[in-house]
């Protein structure tokens, strides 16, 4: 009989300090997230130095809580998985050094996980992955279409050339004077709106799966500027709806086209923006019409968490991938396949 594999995951790439224990890469035993949103709100966004300071304050507490909730001791763990990159360098360093110290203290194997691989593997905690698959990763830092032939194989077929979708949401929200983080507010306003301003769709070259959102953001700013000059009153909900329609249409269309071209058996969405109601509804309808199985993890698994790092780390651990005490936070880490 195979022994069960329990992996401790640690994630500190941005403004959540998180630790989790996952069984066999598919089952959450405990999942602890200490969010810093409240401390960054007054600055209108994540302040990297403050994020790093909070991580140091929280790191041992969240790991202890993850073990306590799992009612487990470190000697029952098979490995420690940590987000190695990408992310804020000072934030990553806290998780990486804590993971190294914990692994060293308990003489456990260490695995460094790519944050996006984590987001993708969050799905596996709710639904087994079927290959080949297409993953749409859409968050404050990422907008990517990734093709996977099998576990640990990643081929980025499309990515953003400027702002990530979540970044564009936050910037537009700021110009509409919505509180940080702005994405959910835009989603809510758009949902309640009876009208939508027509903003451009940015498709880039024929056949490209890349994204660009900075032009759309500028179009929104121009529109607001012109309306103000003409003395027209601006209806934030019409702007929110127009902006969201543009993002949703481009993302849905490209994801659908990629899914068909690559003949995937499954499409999964991941990342904080995947929780957006407008986007979710559009993607679900589009894939349903084409009878392509489509999944989005539940909200707490869409946003940053450590269960997803443990889930991805488990597969890497089973493939024999090991990190050393020389592991460093890698802010610009590229997603590469886990070759043996």
């Amino acid at each position: 009989m195979n022994k069960d594999v329990y992996v401790l995951g640690i994630e500190t790439s941005c403004d959540e300090t998180a630790a989790s224990i996952v069984k066999n890469g598919t089952e959450i035993v405990s999942n602890v997230v200490a969010s810093q949103i409240e401390s960054h709100k007054r600055f209108g966004g994540v302040v990297p130095e403050i994020a790093s300071r909070h991580h140091v304050e929280q790191i041992t507490l969240v790991i202890e809580e993850a073990l306590a909730r799992a009612q487990m001791t470190p000697d029952e763990l098979s490995a420690v998985a940590v987000t190695e990159g990408p992310g804020l360098v000072g934030a990553l360093l806290v998780g990486v050094n804590a993971a190294k110290a914990f692994a060293f203290a308990h003489q456990l194997p260490l695995v460094g996980v790519h944050h996006i691989a984590g987001h993708i593997y969050a799905n596996r905690l709710e639904q087994e992955m079927e290959f080949p698959l297409l993953a749409l990763v859409i968050s404050g830092g990422h907008t990517e279409l990734i093709y996977m032939k099998e576990h640990g194989h990643f081929e980025v077929i499309g990515e953003t050339r400027d702002d990530a979708a979540g970044e564009a949401y936050d910037k537009v929200a700021r110009t509409l004077d919505l509180p940080y983080p702005g994405g959910p507010h835009i989603d809510r306003l758009a949902h309640a709106s009876d009208n939508a301003i027509q903003f451009p769709r940015v498709w880039l070259e024929e056949g490209s799966y890349d994204f660009s959102f900075s032009g759309l953001k500028s179009a929104v700013l121009n529109y607001m500027h012109n309306a103000k000059q003409r003395g027209e009153d601006i209806k934030p909900e019409h702007i929110a709806a127009g902006f969201q329609n543009s993002v949703v249409e481009v993302v849905t269309t490209k994801a659908l086209r990629a899914a068909e071209q690559y003949s995937v058996r499954q499409v999964i969405a991941a990342g904080g923006v995947a929780a957006n109601r407008g986007l979710r509804t559009s993607l679900e309808a589009a894939f349903k019409e084409k009878s392509i199985p489509f999944f989005i993890p539940s909200l707490p698994l869409c946003t940053d968490n450590a269960a997803m790092i443990a889930a991805a780390g488990t597969v890497m651990f089973e493939k024999g991938i090991r990190g050393t005490m020389k592991m460093n936070g890698r802010p610009g880490m590229e997603l590469s396949s886990w070759t043996k």
Binding site: T60, I63, N97, A101
Partner: peptide, 19 residues
């Protein structure tokens, strides 16, 4: 250095807590 002291502190507190 902010980053420097954080690295030492993170390692030290994690080791102390773990052990």
């Amino acid at each position: 250095s902010y980053t420097g002291v954080r690295i030492g502190m993170t390692i030290a507190k994690t080791l102390a807590w773990s052990l």
